[in-house]
């Protein structure tokens, strides 16, 4: 077992408003962590902060990835080290095909040339497991994609780029039952002993398919309770009300 991610007393703000208020988290290889919390708790801020989104300022604390301090590394460097973020709202980029984008990303992350024909072949089985048509590769990145298509496209990238840590920010929102199945199948295929998952969600949909090893309740910028998968079930039944008090 290897340490993948350690977040130590992280504080982060946007426009001088503190959103993350002293967060601690340790993730080891082979683990699946789930962060649950009500809307507006700052869950997405956390994923943005791990990837050094410039919109947020880290005011205190430390983030290490595989033993390296990445607190102040730039987004691209963190990505190249092996952190992947499946975005809650993937951006639409006009004029750049999914394939060219993915090929560029692959060559940046692997640090070597990627050959179109080989790479396309490599993507075929991934796409069919996600129930995606090959023609998606030639469309402009996320442009006019449905919510479900965007999420599938994120998982396609996850599977093609094979990171060490995958952060999935609301990967199941806006998906119908079949799409949730396809997405969770992809995540399940990715999961292994050498990597780890951090799933950020406010729903239980994905968790019915992916067994969580750790569940954290995230309220008002902090983790207020941690436990195993039973914690998720409790929240599913009772909601977050009981935890809001704990945060005072």
């Amino acid at each position: 077992m290897k340490n993948i991610l350690t977040i130590d007393n992280l504080h982060a703000s946007v426009h001088d408003k503190e959103i993350i208020k002293g967060l601690n988290l340790t993730i080891n290889s082979g683990e699946v962590h789930v962060i649950m919390g009500p809307n507006g708790a700052g869950k997405s801020t956390l994923s943005s902060c791990i990837l050094s989104n410039k919109q947020y300022v880290k005011t205190a604390g430390r983030i290490t990835f595989c033993g390296e301090d990445i607190t102040h590394a730039t987004t691209d460097v963190i990505a190249r080290k092996g952190v992947f973020l499946s975005h809650q709202l993937p951006e639409e980029i006009e004029g750049i095909s999914v394939f060219n984008f993915l090929k560029t990303a692959k060559s940046k992350i692997d640090g070597k040339n990627v050959y179109s024909t080989d790479f396309r072949k490599e993507l075929m089985p991934i796409m069919s497991s996600l129930d995606m048509s090959e023609s998606v590769l030639d469309r402009d990145l996320n442009v006019s994609f449905s919510g479900g298509e965007k999420k599938k496209c994120e998982i396609l990238q996850l599977m093609a780029l094979r990171p060490t840590l995958a952060i999935l920010d609301e990967a199941d929102s806006g998906l119908d039952t079949d799409a949730v199945k396809a997405v969770s199948k992809g995540i399940e295929m990715f999961r292994g002993e050498d990597n780890a998952l951090l799933i950020i969600t406010h729903s239980m949909k994905l968790l019915q398919h992916i067994p969580a090893t750790h569940v954290h309740v995230f309220i008002d910028g902090k983790i207020v309770k941690s436990g195993d998968s039973r914690l998720a079930e409790q929240i599913d039944m009772r909601g977050y009300e009981g935890y809001k008090g704990e945060n005072g």
Partner: peptide
């Protein structure tokens, strides 16, 4: 940010967006 989160340097990310914008 989206493109940088896939390993592209900021300048590469901008260039990709601009190339896309110019593609028509």
């Amino acid at each position: 940010f989206y493109l940088m989160s896939r390993g592209l340097m900021e300048s590469d990310a901008k260039a990709m967006i601009v190339r896309g914008f110019a593609s028509p």
